[in-house]
Design a protein around this nucleic acid. Structure first.
Length: 463
RNA sequence: UCCUCGGUAGCUCAGUCGGUAGAGCGGGUGGCUGUUAACCACCUUGUCGGCGGUUCGAGUCCGUCCCGGGGAGCCA
């Protein structure tokens, strides 16, 4: 008999139906009435299924009474209305087969809460816990919602390369990719001779698919990337990973205002989708992680996002009469305390800041007529601060050329990026969003290492 | 990378003034119950992160290294 997922059983409530379930035992409670309650979970939902194992079962004494947390079983029987509280249906087992034992003396998961730090050290078992099962389901639902959002709007999903030849943004340490034996790399005039390496030149793991997305936007119109990116920064925080997933839409014939409008629409749709499709998991996070979670997301969905310029934002902060650790002056990059003040105290909601000083933003952002600010935008949300960063791109060849030089970068390295502005250049815009940070915001989990299955951070490459 | 707080039983933690360790949970046994992280009784568990130093004596004080949490910077 084919197995039925517990999520389907709970949804259908088809009393009297015969079915087979398979999963991992969470807990067993024995009744002297001559039967046992076995709660199993198969990952399809937060809720498990209660199985009634009667002493008449052939292996009741030899096996059922020895089942412990972590064992895997197959149970066949009939669905019945549950007389107990806490569940509507339960499975009256006619046959239970133990698929795999889990020695309780050494199985690390218990029927209680563990610290996230401990669970990180057992990343091979942590998806069997309520929290990490819920994270995995929510992460999946969000990935699906992201694709749905763009596909519904006719965007082309672009597979940007993982290995790249150039330092894309001139920002962020990159991981080198080589086939050299590092102890015997060929040298030329004291330096490693990468012309003899696999690609005939230095190669890195990508830090962003944006420049490649621009290429395709200037042919296909609207594209998006959604894949892993890498930063070799030695930053050990609850918001940074060496390997993380990024979403980067890029739109031709699109200015900054339309870009911001899409970003806002994007966030609202993703949040609405998760609340609708992961109700049970979101209620779990709301109960155990952050009790304001659902309220916050619902508010974001229904409220307008405030849009104001960097200059206006600075003025508000200066007039606020609030002591900041970092003083506010036009030209400084906003600290998270400033971003949070704007969101949480001034506007009590999300804020989109646009038109930043060119000195604090990347070279590819389009210069405004005042020659002081560029068409950049940051979407700021309460608690987290910046969640999306984007811009209208510089589409004027000569202006871009100058900006690359100003940034101290080699214009030759960007020959193809410059040529896009030479042949049929059009206004275009895009934004980038760290997938894990979005999951953090949605789930309320405070450490980014807990929203990705296998976190890569400095000094840590287990699993 | 910097600041800061930590590392003690399988897990979560306590350990006062320096005198070689405790609780809860888990696990085991028994009892009880259509039970719900069940409950009750008894039993069980230690390289006190590593190395070095001070001391008659170090979980405790000092040095150093490793690992983790929180914050900062940078960013996504």
């Amino acid at each position: 008999m084919r197995r039925t997922r517990i999520a389907e059983i709970i949804a259908a409530e088809s009393i009297g139906a015969r079915c087979t379930v398979m999963g991992w035992v969470r807990t067993r409670r024995d009744s002297k009435g001559g039967f046992s309650f076995i709660e199993i979970n198969d990952g399809s939902s937060l809720a498990g299924l209660q199985i009634i194992a009667d002493q008449e079962l052939a292996n009741y004494k030899s096996e059922i009474l020895k089942l412990q947390t972590g064992c895997s079983i197959k149970a066949a029987g009939t669905l019945a209305e549950s007389p107990g509280k806490g569940q509507k249906v339960e499975l009256k087992a006619e046959e239970i087969e133990v698929l795999g034992w889990a020695d309780p003396d050494i199985y690390p998961l218990q029927k209680k809460r563990h610290s996230f730090e401990f669970l990180r050290s057992i990343a091979h078992l942590r998806p069997r816990t309520n929290t990490f099962g819920a994270v995995a389901r929510v992460r999946n639902a969000m990935a699906h919602a992201i694709h749905t959002f763009f596909q519904e709007r006719g965007f082309i999903y672009l597979h940007s390369p993982i290995i790249t030849g150039s330092d894309c943004e001139g920002a962020g340490e990159m991981f080198k990719v080589t086939t050299f034996d590092l102890n015997r790399a060929p040298e030329k005039e004291g330096d490693i001779d990468f012309t003899k390496d696999f690609f005939g030149g230095p190669a890195n793991l990508t830090v962003s698919g944006q420049l490649e997305a621009e290429i395709y936007a200037l042919a296909m119109g609207d594209v998006y990337t959604f894949g892993p990116t890498f930063r070799a920064e030695n930053s050990n925080t609850s918001r940074h990973l060496a390997e993380f997933w990024m979403v980067e839409p890029e739109m031709a014939f699109c200015d900054l205002e339309e870009n911001a409008a899409l970003a806002i629409e994007f966030l609202k749709q993703i949040f609405a989708s998760v609340l609708a499709n992961c109700k049970e998991d979101m209620e779990f996070f709301n109960r155990f992680i952050d009790s304001t979670l659902i309220k916050t997301l619902e508010a974001l969905i229904s409220h307008d996002f405030e849009i104001l310029t960097y200059t206006e934002g600075i003025e508000i902060l200066k007039k606020a009469g609030q002591k900041f650790e970092f003083p506010v002056e036009w030209g400084v990059d906003l600290q998270s305390e400033h971003e949070r003040y704007l969101c949480e105290k001034v506007f009590k909601g999300p804020v989109v800041l646009i038109d930043y000083p060119k000195e604090i933003k990347a070279f590819y952002m389009k210069m405004n007529q005042n020659e002081k600010t560029v068409r950049a935008m940051d979407v700021l949300v309460p608690k987290i601060g910046e969640i999306i960063g984007g811009s209208q791109r510089e589409d004027d060849h000569d202006a871009l050329y100058e900006r690359i030089k100003e940034a101290g970068l080699n214009t030759d390295d960007y020959w193809w990026y410059l040529e896009l502005r030479k042949f049929g250049s059009v206004p275009h815009s895009g934004f980038g969003l760290g997938f894990e940070r979005l999951i953090q915001f949605v789930t309320g989990l405070s450490n980014i290492r807990d929203v990705i299955p296998f976190p890569r951070t400095p000094g840590n490459l287990s699993f």
